[in-house]
Design a protein around this nucleic acid. Structure first.
Lengths: 245, 245
DNA sequence: GAGTGGTCTAGACCACCAA
DNA sequence: TGGTGGTCTAGACCACTCT
């Protein structure tokens, strides 16, 4: 394909991986072997391997070799929504949700536009980590209008800023407080993680994150919550089922 | 952050980009400049720049310099569904849809499980390219059961395998043929593009693709169509609004 | 200890772009 | 023409893993 040596090597190896010559879990030929095979210098071979690495095909491991990744990792279903409560129940049933922080803060420009409150107004910001099996797969940042939090507390629903309470179910709590959730809008995109996200989600090189921005409003169109959700795309997919009119 | 020289350089440059010292559209210091500044070899500096490149932060250009990318590219809304017809209308209104190919073929294992037909059964496969402004942003591969295509043709809806007809609206046509669309299920994930996709979608290094798998069924649960949609994540986001119970 | 990949150097030549 | 990034080399040393 490419006209340069390293891209030819990369192309060859890519084809061999695709053809099953190097199945998932196996290792590619070692760098010295590839050097002699292609009469190339070490860094040229490494350039080729790096290409495959950023494509998400292989993971080089010191002392081990260049390991071929799983082609179809088990993709855990994350959010078959249709009703927010269903979503809450299903994620809880499939994995573990951990409330990392929950505190009052003042809305900045972004939060104010999400929740349609004034800049500086008090809101609750909660951060949750979602685990599936061994590791973390999702970092969920959520904002809730202060007025709603106070309403819920007044109706005996508890303190949303209390970390020891656990994540709870904001949709049920809002409903019980008379603010019935009516619709959710999600916007999904993808990008490469920044170093913090790569570390937090334990992402290998070449794996992007799914970014979901969600806002849930009540029957009057007033926001109940807004979320910024970052998911490891090698372990999470997002599903929707929509009934058509 | 990192303990190696190239990751220190990358980290410094990343911070300077984040702080606005190098705004989008500007260029980083040239490689020779960074070599003297960090007393590093050329390839070490290039390693640092490559890190930022695969993170999607910069795009090196020969003869120009290393250009800082736009932080928030205009994200064209792609699919606020809720009704499939709305979706069709909105994408048509925002951009251009081009039917690249449409032909009969035999269902393989994947297609048979998508459409719930037997392997080897005749289906129609259509490929569409979606354009926004200048360039292509989406490659849409769609399968339609042969029985439905024949039904539509019998009711005067036209030949779905006719490329000159244009993409049309399979949902309306199925409805007119008595197969009313009832629900759509979409599963979204992200990954790095393969070389073909990177070429087709004109993707810079460090930009993942959004992958959407969709199946639409009628009121009897029979699939009307199934789609595999690959979108350029730097130009497309996917939106849903769901009414809650 | 032997083998793996990871980093780094100093130098060379090539491809591309702007003035 | 001069400056930019892109590729490639030969050699060195380091960090890690397995046996």
């Amino acid at each position: 394909m490419g006209t340069t040596l390293y891209s030819r090597i990369a192309s060859d190896l890519r084809d061999q991986i695709a053809s099953g010559e190097f199945p998932p879990g196996s290792t590619l030929p070692a760098i010295p072997e590839l050097m002699t095979r292609y009469d190339a210098a070490r860094d040229t071979v490494r350039d080729a391997i790096r290409v495959l690495s950023v494509e998400g095909l292989v993971t080089p491991r010191r002392g081990i070799g260049t390991v071929v990744r799983e082609t179809s990792p088990v993709r855990l279903e994350y959010a078959p929504i249709g009703a927010a409560r269903t979503w809450e129940a299903q994620t809880a049933g499939e994995g573990t949700d951990k409330l990392v922080s929950a505190e009052w803060e003042q809305a900045d420009r972004d939060v104010s536009s999400r929740l349609r409150v004034d800049i500086g107004e008090r809101v609750i910001r909660r951060v949750r980590h979602h685990y599936q099996g061994q590791g973390i797969v999702q970092v969920h940042e959520q904002w809730i209008p202060g007025t709603l939090a106070e309403l819920i507390a007044a109706k005996g629903g508890g303190d949303l800023a209390d970390t020891t309470r656990g994540p709870g179910n904001i949709f049920q709590e809002a409903d019980a407080a008379g603010r019935k959730p009516a619709s959710t809008t999600e916007r999904i995109t993808a990008r490469m993680p920044d170093p913090d996200e790569r570390e937090a989600l334990e992402l290998p090189v070449g794996v992007p994150v799914l970014v979901t921005n969600r806002t849930t409003v009540d029957v009057d169109g007033q926001p109940i919550e807004s979320s910024h959700i970052v998911s490891a795309s090698d372990r999470v997919s997002q599903s929707f089922t929509v009934q058509l009119g």
